[in-house]
């Protein structure tokens, strides 16, 4: 009897989760597979005729392959930003842990500010303009790096504390420079936290909508998220294509999720705890 009751509870939990969390995604996939005529109805139903591949082709070829161009932009943006965040962030995080002096505590205060203070939009545009970086991909990369660094540094600093100092001393006695010590000895040991930073920052930056909206406007510069936002006004009554685009841009994080489910969950849970 007791056994039966716990099964009941499990069943209720699963069904509730399906309704609340899976239905919206099912809606995206089903609508993306319908004809324009049928997709307009906004029903949660199987398509009368599956048009998945032809819809996919149509979205990808729309406006001279804008979606592919945007995906490329998004990948370049994500990869470059994450690479810089990892290297720069690890250098600062490690050094902050080892040198606990006044400079380090001032730096820690500035990092905390970066975590809570919303960036001032127009002055940032103005600054980028002065540097000739406004509306350029390198400009947006620097923006993502600046906004993503504080969180990465905190993770790197916390992890560096677990690496014994005896290791540094041994390397120094062997005649390593500070530079060699960090890149040859320490950096490889940071591997677990590097993976965490790569996964969490790449999802954040790939999904970012606000910063590309402000700092990288223009058709040729569109990122994946911006195409979806802009298509809403272009694909009027072509909901199948709109949701197909939503599906396409969700695939990279989905793949990450399938492969690194545990790592993402642990990383994010640990990350925000700092």
């Amino acid at each position: 009897m007791r056994q039966l009751r716990t099964y009941w509870l499990d069943a209720v939990a699963i069904v509730a989760c399906l309704l609340v969390f899976v239905v919206p995604f099912a809606f995206i996939v089903l609508t993306a597979s319908k004809s324009a005529e049928e997709a307009k109805e906004w029903e949660l139903s199987l398509p009368e005729e599956w048009r998945f591949w032809s819809n996919l082709r149509e979205v990808l070829s729309f406006d001279d392959g804008l979606v592919m161009l945007a995906m490329r932009n998004s990948f370049i943006l994500t990869i470059c930003s994450v690479a810089l965040i990892v290297v720069f962030g690890a250098m600062v995080g490690f050094t902050l842990d080892r040198r606990r002096d006044r400079v380090a505590s001032v730096a820690s205060g500035m990092i905390m500010m970066g975590l809570i203070i919303p960036p001032a939009v127009v002055p940032t545009i103005y600054t980028l303009q002065q540097l000739q970086l406004f509306k350029t991909l390198p400009g947006l990369i620097l923006v993502e790096v600046a906004f993503g660094l504080p969180y990465a540094i905190i993770l790197f600093r916390a992890f560096s504390a677990t690496i014994p100092r005896e290791l540094d001393e041994a390397a120094m006695i062997d005649g390593c420079s500070g530079f060699r010590l960090f890149f040859k000895v320490i950096f490889p040991l940071l591997r677990p936290v590097i993976i965490t930073v790569i996964i969490t920052s790449s999802i954040t930056i790939y999904n970012d909508f606000t910063n590309p909206l402000y700092f990288l406007p223009g058709r040729d510069n569109a990122t994946a998220q911006l195409t979806l936002f802009n298509f809403r006004s272009q694909f009027i009554s072509q909901w199948n294509l709109l949701f197909m685009d939503a599906l396409i841009i969700t695939i990279p994080p989905l793949i990450m999720f399938l492969f690194f489910n545990r790592k993402i969950v642990d990383g994010m849970a640990g990350a925000v705890k700092g």
């Binding site: 720069f88 660094l149 120094m172 530079f179």
Partner: peptide, 24 residues
Amino acid sequence: AYPRSFYVPAGLVYLVIFFVPTGL
């Protein structure tokens, strides 16, 4: 062992792109 120059790359990006605009 732990040169302060390690702060420079991150610090530069952070100051120019985040701190200066916040001050402005």
